[in-house]
Simulated scan of single mutants.
Amino acid sequence: MATLTEHIIKLTDHRDRELLELTLSKALIDLLRIDRVVIARVLSEEGVKRWLEVASLDVRGGGKVVDPLRVDFDSLRELADEKDRLRCLQTRSLVEYAWAGEEGPRISFIPLFADSASDDEGVIEVHSGSALSQGQVQVIEDIVHVFRNMYRLLAYSDRDALTGLLNRKSLDDTFYSAVLEEMDHGLEGETAVLEASVLPVAERRHRVPPNYWLGTVDVDHFGVINDKSGHLIAEEVLLLVARIMNNTFRTYDRIYRLGGEQFAVLMHCPDEALVLAAFERFRANMEKFNFPQVGRATACAGFTRVTADDSPSTTLERAERAVDYAQRNGRNQVHSYDDLVRKGLFGDAVKVGAVDIF
């Protein structure tokens, strides 16, 4: 059995936040005499908050890891449906539910994050045959403390300094890991996450599923805004654009600032029309927003389906071609690269899986 020190080393070896919950779950199962660990995070969409069980492991080796990008939000349980989890979240303290009497099995709820001001919210469920001892509680507190430190450190390195959105490095990392819905049947859950972390880049490029979409957003006439209003006002515009994006897209869509006035969104969606509708909502929200000292500002967006042969650069290039088309044809528009190809406006072929559609 690995020691506490060995599990701390494993946690601090990570450079990928997506694997931290899995590593934390393994550490708790290995170090404590418990039956099961569940880590539940809070997701929100249009003001509704729900629970997503991002990782679960049991002592017999069974378990799963869920990619938030691929979740059906409406199928998740609302916060009030899990009263003990919610009480733990609200009090930021240990909550116990002894479901078969005070001396019997129970679930202990521990807050995943300590800072109530943080946007990240979650709860650890520890399923055990009896009450946790003081020593077990101390081990949990120690290992969770290390998890929180690593999470904050990795979150800081993944973020754009101005807007707080994810940065380009994070996009590259996500493209080769969290985006991977395994195309081989039967490879799922924990195995999928673990394989995504160790596959060489050349092999990962051929395992991207067809239902991921990458879009880019460019603020129209941003150079004019900068020249007319000054650098500080232009930065304020970028901050407000980031806020509009956060308020428009789903919390489990990945939103990035690529640099300058360029942003990107990575999402999992079954239908091109739904992706177009999401970007149109953003365009409309941007258009009606009153930017202080600037007034009206608009944006162009373009998006494309991620294919199995893609890399981040090739996908971004296609999305940017759709943005360029919008800018040349009046601005304040959203276009699908794939749709422009189908209409014959670009000379490319749209690829879906291994099939070329001309």
Rank of each mutant, 00 (worst) to 15 (best):
P105Q: 08
R207I: 06
L22F: 14
A297G: 01
S229E: 11
M1T: 09
S25F: 08
A319W: 04
V139S: 05
Y156C: 07
V237S: 08
Y176F: 15
F358C: 01
R36P: 01
M1G: 11
G330H: 08
T251S: 15
R15F: 11
I255V: 15
T216K: 10
R257W: 04
G353L: 05
E46C: 00
I244A: 05
V37W: 13
R36G: 01
E280K: 04
E272V: 07
A117H: 05
F249Q: 05
H7Q: 12
T314H: 12
E125A: 06
R41L: 09
R159M: 14
L165Y: 05
S311Y: 04
T307I: 11
P209H: 05
L276I: 02
A273Q: 14
T216D: 12
G101Q: 09
R281L: 10
F109R: 03
F222T: 01
D119Q: 10
V179H: 02
R85C: 13
E141R: 13
K288H: 09
L165S: 06
G101S: 10
A202M: 06
V341I: 06
L266P: 14
E102N: 08
V179W: 02
A326I: 03
L20I: 09
S128V: 03
S313Q: 11
T314P: 01
E195M: 10
V38C: 05
R152L: 09
A242W: 10
L4D: 14
H185C: 04
V66R: 00
R41M: 10
I107T: 14
T12W: 03
T163K: 12
L180N: 01
R318I: 04
S313N: 06
P210L: 02
A301Q: 07
R92T: 10
T5I: 11
A80E: 09
A297K: 11
F175D: 03
A98D: 08
G259A: 12
L28K: 00
R243L: 10
E53A: 12
G353S: 08
D119S: 11
G129E: 15
G61K: 08
A277H: 09
M1R: 04
L165E: 07
F346R: 06
A308C: 06
P270K: 11
D324Q: 13
D172G: 02
L32F: 06
A277Q: 15
R168I: 05
D119H: 10
D172E: 11
P209N: 06
S157E: 13
E280A: 12
R152G: 03
L11P: 00
I34M: 08
A202F: 14
M1L: 05
P312I: 07
V37L: 11
E21Q: 12
L165A: 07
